[in-house]
Structures are given as C-alpha cells and as structure tokens.
Simulated assay, not measured.
Amino acid sequence: MDTAKKSASVEASARIDSALNRSMMQLLDHVEYRLITGGEDLEAIYRLRYKSYLRSGMCGPIAGGMFEDRWDNLPNSYRFGVYCYGELVSTVRLHYISSDQPYSPSVDAYPEILLPRLARGETFIDGTRFATDPDSAPAPGVLPFLTLRICMAAYCYFRQTAMFIPIKLEHSAFYARFFSATQRTAGKAFPGVLPPLALFEIPGNQENVQRILDRLPFFRSTATEQRLMFGNPAINRLTPLSILPTAKYYRDAA
C-alpha cells in the first residue's frame, strides 16, 4: 500500500511539473529581464522592495517609500528587475562572492559559515532582496519561478561552489523541494529586515544543477543570455540592459 501511494504521489508530482513547464514556457515569451544600474528603473525596484517588504512584515515604514541598502552599489552586485507584459513584477539582487571580493549581506550576517569557506577558495552566489508584486502577477505562483530563473543562469555562468539564500523558515519547503536547499543556520537577525532569517545552501555541483534543469527546463539559458546578465555588473551604467529569456531555444531544438 505504501508503495502504491508513493507511486501515485510521484505521478501526481510529474503531472504538476509538466503543467508548470508548459505554462512557464509560454509565459517567457512575454518576459524581459533588466540588469538595472541607475535611473528610474532603479527607483522602481527600490519601491517594489519596499511595497513587498512592508506588506509581508519584512520592514517598517520608510520615508520616501524606497528600500535600498549599502550592498546595492558594490562592484560585485547585480540588481535585476523582472518585467512581464511590460510591467515590473519582481526583483532580486545577487552578489558573486570570492576571497577577492568577500562582500555581501550574508557574509556580514553569517561570517562563521562563509568566511572560512571563502578562505579555502570556494565561491558563492548570495541571493537577497527578493521581492514580488502579487497584484501584477500574470498567474498565481509564477513569480518565484520567473525570478529564480536568474539564479539558475548565474549558476551556469559562474560555476560557483554553491548559492546561499537567507530566508524565513516558512519558505524552506519550496527551496528544498525544487533546489535541494539545506539549512545551515538557525533563524537570526539579518541586516535591514525585521524577522529572523536562516541561511540555506543550494549545492552548485553539476549533478544538482542538471537535476533542476531537467525537471524545470524553463530555467535553461543560452551562454549569450548568461553573458548579458553577468559578464559585467556595469554598476555605473545609467541605462538598464534588457535581456530576453532563451529557454525556448532549447525547447525548439528538442
């Protein structure tokens, strides 16, 4: 009986993944990623962060209605806006950290975890300031996938040891299910936000990355897309760089 239940659960999960892949592939035709470094688009993502964080209790009222911090303008910082049907729907910030550039909010919040590993020559992506606008979502539940697709492009470009994400424990099941994330710390104070966050690690080994891409092929990206996203942070560029998703090219070639 247990075997039958397990088999039924696996089949149901496969059907859900298949439906998700079909809808996401169709949606990507209407998505644009922007590497944002200044101007009105930068203010827009700071406003979106504030709106999202205030609604979810991540922060309190801030004069001016924008959420930014001292890690935004670091040379190893990449700030992205996700646009769907021309509207900003989500944002995320990534830092590529190494022994040469050990600068990110998670390094400051969890030095006991990250600094010894950086000293050994490991490299990481630190994913923070993930914010969405549910009111603008094109469909329920799609914004995390649209946004985290950027993280998978980073994986394929940098080939880093792992990705670290500081999150509320209530979100851990999602990251464990789709990314094999493992909790590395208890919840603790994190710079700039009110609730305690726990540090989770997503392995960057080829086996885990390939498993994710096989299960969710809309996360795939071409080398050109990856290079446009991460080839140069261009932190002083005033005009945002617009990047179109390329997962469909893998689909069409299959």
Score class of each variant (00 low, 15 high):
Thr224Gly: 12
Asp108Ile: 04
Pro245Ala: 06
Ile150Arg: 03
Ser106Tyr: 01
Tyr250Thr: 11
Phe145Asp: 04
Phe164Ala: 03
Val142Arg: 03
Ser99Tyr: 07
Ser242Tyr: 08
Ser9Lys: 14
Val31Cys: 05
Arg184Trp: 12
Ser99Trp: 10
Asn205Arg: 02
Ala154Tyr: 03
Asn76Trp: 03
Arg70Met: 10
Arg251Cys: 11
Asn236Glu: 15
Gly60Phe: 13
Trp71Asp: 13
Tyr96Pro: 13
Tyr83Leu: 04
Asp133Gly: 04
Leu143Cys: 00
Arg129Tyr: 01
Cys151Ala: 08
Ile167Asn: 03
Phe230Gly: 05
Arg184His: 12
Gly39Ser: 04
Arg211Gln: 10
Asp252His: 12
Gln26Leu: 15
Arg49Ala: 09
Gly192Asp: 00
Pro233Tyr: 07
Leu42Glu: 00
Asn232Val: 10
Pro111Phe: 03
Ile97Gly: 01
Ala189Gly: 11
Leu118Lys: 05
Gln160Asp: 12
Ile62Glu: 04
Ile167Phe: 04
Ile150Thr: 04
Leu28Cys: 02
Thr132Pro: 03
Gln206Met: 14
Arg237Trp: 11
Trp71Ala: 12
Leu88Pro: 00
Trp71Asn: 09
Ala154Arg: 00
Arg55Glu: 12
Arg184Ile: 11
Asp135Phe: 13
Leu143Glu: 02
Lys248Glu: 12
Pro61Val: 06
Val142Ile: 10
Arg70Val: 13
Phe130Lys: 04
Glu43Ser: 15
Gly86Arg: 10
Leu216Arg: 05
Arg22Gln: 13
Thr147Gln: 05
Pro166Asn: 01
Gly57Asp: 03
Asn21Cys: 11
Ser18Met: 15
Gly127Pro: 11
Tyr46Gln: 15
Arg237Gly: 08
Val31Ile: 08
Ile235Asn: 11
Leu216Pro: 15
Glu43Ile: 14
Leu48Arg: 01
Ala173Gly: 07
Ser52Ile: 02
Asp135Lys: 12
Phe200Thr: 03
Tyr53Asp: 07
Gly81Val: 06
Ala119Arg: 06
Asp69Glu: 07
Ala119Gln: 09
Ala44Phe: 07
